[in-house]
Design a protein around this nucleic acid. Structure first.
Lengths: 262, 262
DNA sequence: CGAGTGATTGAAGTGGGTCAACCCTCGTGG
DNA sequence: CCACGAGGGTTGACCCACTTCAATCACTCG
């Protein structure tokens, strides 16, 4: 008997619960009220007062569904909006002139997408759904408008951009480490992010292939596979294809040298 | 007989010319008029109208001198302003928890510094002068103020942040290439940047050590040295310690696969 | 002039890449 | 309902680009 993957870990059970009390037609466009959104706590900064949230609600936000494997944003396309992931999982990537793809990041609930186009008004990175997903769309003119009205909002935008910068800095550092450290770090981050969003940090379904992990970490798929096996043999994790369990968090921290503040 | 390095290439002769008609006391703090600044063409977006420049002049800009080897910004320090390089040369870097340093970028005339602190109000990267330098200081409250008054200014800030994001994306791609490609790419960029600023793109004095180039490119200093020797032997460049000449630009472009639009 | 920092060069070692064979799982269509 | 094919994953053997270690050299600055 096979286990239905949707029953295992990440997204679906929670999503469905929400859908019941917040019945938005998938793919439909409609003015949305952020106050009742389940991603509000991640999407808007905690510091934002109730007053400011009303301001945010004065801008038009629509939603969109993206099927697994489809791209939400194509590098080179015109920029007119940014997105926030409501449900699902994305990868963002760039392709070098020579044609090789590099994976910049994975994005999940509450993360923003498309901000990199804000300067040149053209998107520079691709965003592709790794599972069926749903996003909020915020028009650029609304961002401009809100930035002028609300300092808090402006700071929110600055924060988002700054967060991306940090992620990148961090990624650069990662590329100096050896394969085991990189993978361990990747797992630490991933589970941290799941934990913050209320999912189990110790048992999860990887939404990406070995190739994609490799493109993200700057390694080949064989190396990823071998390193997983290595971590598995030393009892740090248990892995079977996409199904992963973290067995020894301390060992993981020992490898990366980073203790995650809980 | 040794050559006085200040007579060779990069910064000084130009700087001194400017000083005569724009006599700011080095290290002194004083309200500055951007209209007469020689870096205006790089510092403010070309699209900015004369009108908007008046607005920019309504904010208080001061200047500061930094001696070679000194740090302008320390990671972890409080954020209250961003900087623009007027003259000189900087490196920006982060240090991992494990203590290893990674060099993020080199910054020269017209480039901004310190933007990464805008979100958390704490600087995340170090900025250290690689030669005696001079910067403009813009207070964060002024940025907030201006962003609300002027859409053009807001876009300018977005542009700066976005530019940093691009640089990082680009750096990530670079770390997938081999040593020769990375170094060639580094030289292409460096000379491009010098050219844009009116300096000779074919003859220059490297302001950074082999170690620093290595930290930037993710390679060891010996590899940098060997690769320079290799490029030298194949007639692409001529190098003697810090003094570099690009002898064959086409060969450089062939290595990187990128033809720089002139 | 001598110490110290930065650069070059050689020799040997190694982590991850490359190539190739094979396995597992799942979806599709006969 | 089973066969088959494709995509994803694992594992082994070999190779090579870059690292590591070490010796030596070249400037520069008290």
């Amino acid at each position: 008997m096979t286990i239905d993957k949707h029953n295992i870990v990440n997204s679906s059970y929670k999503r469905d619960k929400i859908r019941m009390k917040n019945p938005i037609v998938a793919g439909g466009k409609k003015k949305i009220n952020c106050n009742s959104c389940h991603t509000r706590e991640y999407c808007l900064p905690q510091s934002m007062s109730a007053n400011d949230i009303d301001d945010v609600n004065s801008i038009v936000i629509t939603r969109k569904s993206i099927k697994k494997g489809q791209s939400l944003i194509r590098a080179g396309s015109d920029f007119h909006s940014i997105y926030t992931v409501r449900t699902g999982f994305f990868k963002t990537s760039i392709t070098s002139p020579s044609g090789q793809e590099h994976l910049l990041d994975f994005r999940m609930t509450g993360d923003s997408l498309g901000l990199d186009g804000i300067a040149k008004k053209v998107h520079l990175t691709d965003s592709i759904a790794l599972e069926d997903s749903n996003v909020c769309i915020i028009q650029y003119q609304d961002i401009e408008k809100m930035s002028k009205i609300s300092t808090v909002f402006l700071n929110h935008i600055f924060n988002l951009m700054s967060k991306e910068l940090n992620r990148e800095n961090y990624n650069l550092l990662m590329l100096q480490m050896n394969a085991e450290e990189r993978l361990a770090r990747f797992l630490q981050n991933l589970t941290q992010n799941l934990k913050i969003r209320g999912y189990s940090p110790s048992e999860l379904l990887l939404r990406m292939t070995r190739v994609e992990i490799g493109q993200y970490l700057g390694l080949k798929l064989e190396t990823i596979s071998r390193t997983f096996t290595k971590l598995s043999k030393s009892g740090v994790v248990s892995i079977n294809r996409r199904h992963l369990q973290i067995l020894n968090l301390e060992a993981l921290e020992k490898i990366t040298g980073v203790t995650h503040k809980t």
